[in-house]
Structure formats: structure tokens, C-alpha cells
């Protein structure tokens, strides 16, 4: 019996260890995970050099896990999508968006279709997709869920469930591309940046997959930081992080996102996302 009590004490001891001085960040898992790991470990090295504070990246399995880690102060900085960023900042008082990609204020979602669906590219919303099989990306994604769902509801006046034969959540943009490419789903909604990246990587067979519609632009990805970071790492730390992110010039680092550069951001840039999320009932 003693053994077990000691064991319990050990477990508690392990978990209450607090690493006070490490600056930790995470990112939403929107693409292939091994690619993310490589990309953000490089970012960690870069930030550590710029900030002279020990910096670490931790991988998470879902968008919600990224938000929770941010909320629980297990990470102080995060690379969020539009929706996850809005959610996270709502939950952590004083937290703010400090940077976004150059392309992020005018982000787009592509609706892509497999040849077998018979759908053709169009300028207006292609209503012919009703009754097909359709996949979103992650449940918590902006470009893979929120915006496409918003446009689907607007066009049909019905929830996606009622519009399509079958609705799936692939989990990530790379996965959406793969599923439509293989024909497992006839139509999918995907982040335009990831689509282009997969296209360049030769992972899309253009004889089989085509873009049938592009959404109007909307604000998306952002770096957000907790409000109490200055207290923990010293005055002006938040500003230094912002400077380091915006000052990122190494093309190797930027290409992996892929973004041309990072620019400043403020919370209210993402107000349209919050409004849309409220409108379709994803945020109370």
C-alpha cells in the first residue's frame, strides 16, 4: 500500500514541476505534422536567438488543443487561424494578436472538385455541388470550416448536412486535398495557401482535381500572445516578440509557412471572423 501512496506522490510531484523561464509556443496543426515540426523547430531556434530566452515549440493534435494550451498558460505564444485566434483571445483576458502573414488580411478558400463530380469552375457560387459528397478540413478551421460553411449556408439557406449527400471533416487541409484527389470525396474546401503548396509539391493530379470556386477575401492566420507575458519575461517582451516576428527575413523560414513576410496585426482586424462565427452559431 505504501508503494502506491509513494507512487501517487511521485506522479503529483512530476506534474507540478514548473518551468518558469522557458518561452513556449504552439501552432494549429493545419498541415502534415512532420512538416510542422520541422518548420516550428526552426522558428524556435530563430526566436531563441532574437529574444535571448530559452524557446520551445510543442506540437498539438487539434485546433482545440492549441487554444486550450494557450488558455492554460502552457504556451504563451501561438500561430492560430482566424477562428481559433478569436476563440483563444476571448478566453484569455488581455491577450492580443501581434502579427499576421502578409497574405492573411485577404485570405481565400478554394472549393475543389474531383473530375467524377462533373463540376466546372465558375465565378458565382457553384450550386451544382448540392447532393455530392463534401469534406471540410478541421472542425475548428477558418478556411476549412467557418468560411466555406458560411458561404454554403448563404447560397442554399440550409445547413451543410442538408445540402450534401455526406459531410466529412478531414482534419487538415493536406488531408482534404488528398481525399478529393483520390476521389473519396467529390468536393472539398481548402485553404488556398496549402492548395498551392501541395500543387507545387506535385501532390495534386490536375487532370482529376480542379478549383471550382474561390471565396472573397477574409482575415485569417495570426500570431497571438498572452497578456501576462511581460510580467513573466520582463517589460517590453511582447514588443520584442512582435519585432522578431515581423523582422523575420530568412526566406527558408518564411517559405515554410508559406508567407511573403509578417506584418503587424491588432485584435480588431479579426472582427469579421468573430461576426461570421456568431452568425453560424460556432461561438455563443
Amino acid at each position: 500500500m505504501k508503494k502506491f501512496i509513494m507512487l501517487a506522490a511521485l506522479i503529483l510531484g512530476f506534474t507540478s514541476q514548473i518551468q518558469a523561464t522557458e518561452f513556449v509556443f504552439t501552432a494549429i496543426p493545419d498541415q502534415d505534422e512532420s512538416a510542422l515540426k520541422k518548420r516550428f523547430n526552426k522558428i524556435a531556434v530563430y526566436l531563441e536567438k532574437e529574444l535571448s530566452v530559452k524557446t520551445k515549440y510543442i506540437p498539438v493534435k487539434s485546433y482545440a488543443a492549441a487554444v486550450t494550451a494557450f488558455r492554460n498558460n502552457q504556451v504563451q505564444l501561438a500561430w492560430f487561424g482566424g477562428l481559433s485566434g478569436v476563440r483563444a483571445r476571448q478566453l484569455v483576458k488581455g491577450s492580443k494578436a501581434i502579427a499576421q502573414g502578409f497574405e492573411d488580411p485577404f485570405f481565400e478558400t478554394y472549393f475543389i472538385a474531383h473530375k467524377s463530380s462533373g463540376l466546372k469552375p465558375s465565378l458565382s457560387f457553384p450550386k451544382g455541388m448540392a447532393g455530392k459528397t463534401f469534406t471540410f478540413g478541421s472542425k475548428g478551421s477558418t478556411s476549412g470550416r467557418l468560411m466555406p460553411e458560411f458561404h454554403i449556408r448563404k447560397a442554399f439557406g440550409k445547413t451543410p448536412d442538408k445540402v450534401f449527400k455526406r459531410v466529412g471533416f478531414s482534419g487538415s487541409h493536406s488531408r482534404t486535398v488528398a481525399l478529393v484527389n483520390s476521389g473519396a470525396y467529390e468536393v472539398g474546401a481548402v485553404n488556398f495557401k496549402v492548395y498551392k503548396k501541395e500543387l507545387n509539391a506535385g501532390k495534386i493530379d490536375q487532370k482529376k482535381v480542379s478549383i471550382i470556386w474561390k471565396t472573397p477575401g477574409y482575415p485569417d492566420y495570426n500570431w497571438s500572445i498572452r497578456g501576462d507575458t511581460d510580467k513573466k519575461f520582463g517589460k517590453g517582451f511582447t514588443n520584442r516578440v512582435q519585432k522578431a516576428l515581423i523582422g523575420m527575413k530568412d526566406p527558408v523560414l518564411l517559405r515554410s509557412f508559406p508567407r511573403k513576410s509578417f506584418i503587424k496585426a491588432v485584435n480588431k482586424d479579426f472582427k469579421p471572423i468573430l461576426d461570421t462565427a456568431r452568425e453560424i452559431g460556432l461561438i455563443d
Binding site: T15, Q17, Q19, I58, A69
Partner: peptide, 15 residues
């Protein structure tokens, strides 16, 4: 049991 305790992943701050 002891080995299991040792290899447990290091945990972040928990409050």
C-alpha cells in the same frame, strides 16, 4: 512501476 514513473513525459505547468 518505477520505470514507468521515470519515463513519463515531462509536464508543463499545471495549476
Amino acid at each position: 512501476l518505477i520505470a514507468a514513473c521515470v519515463v513519463l513525459p515531462e509536464s508543463g505547468a499545471m495549476t
